[in-house]
């Protein structure tokens, strides 16, 4: 078990390192010249000489491996980053300086990760509970009207594009009526209650829109499990329907559900782009999206992609560990 964790941590570290390398190369060698936006933003005419001077300043004229080494050195020990003609101090872990704000990317990241994590936790709780409850209910009544209504209802909900759901909820529930308070992120350090209030609708919309996927998956797993031999054994013991469903069937069906949930949760932590954008929440997703606008804010994009990769690798690791607890037949080692 301990050996397994150490080995998995090491390999996770290697994967993230590789991801950072690939991301760095893609943007470094890509068609977009990071010096261009800086040159444009500096005002006046952007001549070729000037652009080259900026490139030299920012270290963009160096070979890619050397540039990557500089970047990694900054992550570990910090460095001084030159953007345009200004030099910025950047403490470890240095992920660069945002071209748009001139602030260290890491400092901005720290601020934006909180609302994203909060939305992910609240939203995923909503869809996990809602999805599993609906799925178990439908499986227990499979073939009946209730089951068919739940399945087709969930299909309808999940076939509406997510951004549309967000937009409609935002327009009708916060703008035209005030059933829900205005959304947004209000720092949790000031008033946690206001924070929850501002994120409540976005999390609810995220949860309700994702719940049908979980309902159908849960139903499928439950129906499969209910056909297993040990369910017949449980009935033959004289257990009542609830005991058979919750203690025997759900216990077995929950394992793959937890797996999918863990992976989805990792992806959510990387940024909930539509949710944050439409409900005006300054989190990772919106930050990354805005960094794509002209002028491109490459250090920010690199950082958001890396954070996304980190969460996905990390959630995979957690899922594997949890799996060992949920299924006694699985031996980690």
């Amino acid at each position: 078990m301990f050996g397994f964790v150490v080995r998995r941590l090491l390999s996770s570290f290697v994967v993230i390192l590789l991801a950072s390398f690939v991301v760095f190369i893609i943007f470094y060698l890509g068609p977009s010249n990071p010096a261009e936006p800086v040159c444009q933003a500096a005002g006046g005419r952007c001549t070729d000489e000037r652009r080259e001077a900026i490139e030299k300043n920012m270290g963009l004229d160096k070979p890619v491996l050397e540039a990557y080494a500089t970047f990694m050195k900054g992550v570990v020990a910090g460095r001084e980053v030159t953007v345009g003609s200004t030099a910025y101090p950047c403490d470890a872990p240095c992920l660069g300086i945002s071209y748009a704000t001139g602030l260290p990317v890491y400092e901005e990241l720290k601020k934006r990760i909180v609302p994203t994590v909060l939305i992910a936790i609240m939203g995923s709780l909503v869809y996990l509970v809602l999805g599993v409850v609906i799925g178990v209910f439908a499986a227990a009544r499979r073939g009946t009207m209730g089951d068919r209504m739940l399945v087709s209802g969930s299909l309808i909900v999940s076939s509406v594009p997510y951004y549309l759901v967000c937009l409609l909820a935002w327009i009708y529930l916060t703008q035209q009526t005030s059933i829900f308070p205005a959304t947004g992120y209000f720092p949790i350090t000031e008033n946690p209650f206001t924070t929850i209030k501002g994120l409540f609708l976005p999390a609810l919309v995220l949860g309700i829109a994702t719940a049908p996927t979980y309902a159908r998956f849960t139903r499928g797993q439950m129906v499969e499990t209910l056909g297993d031999d040990y369910i017949r054994t449980a009935k033959a013991k004289g257990l009542n329907g609830r005991g058979v469903m919750m203690k025997h069937a759900l216990r077995a069906a929950i394992v793959p559900i937890v797996t999918i949930f863990g992976l989805d949760f990792g992806a959510l932590l990387g940024g909930t782009i539509f949710t944050e954008f439409i409900f005006d929440i300054d989190g990772m997703g919106r930050w990354g999206l805005f960094a794509l606008r002209s002028p491109l804010d490459l250090p920010v994009i690199t950082a958001t992609v890396l954070v996304g990769a980190f969460f996905i690798v990390f959630s995979n690791l957690i899922v594997d560990l949890v799996y060992g607890f949920l299924d006694p037949r699985v031996r980690l080692g």
């Binding site: 040990y230 006694p328 037949r329």
Partner: peptide, 16 residues
């Protein structure tokens, strides 16, 4: 009245 089934590996719950 009780029943015992064939293939006990499948008939016993794997997680308990």
């Amino acid at each position: 009245a009780a029943m015992i089934f064939q293939d006990a590996l499948a008939a016993l719950h794997p997680f308990y």
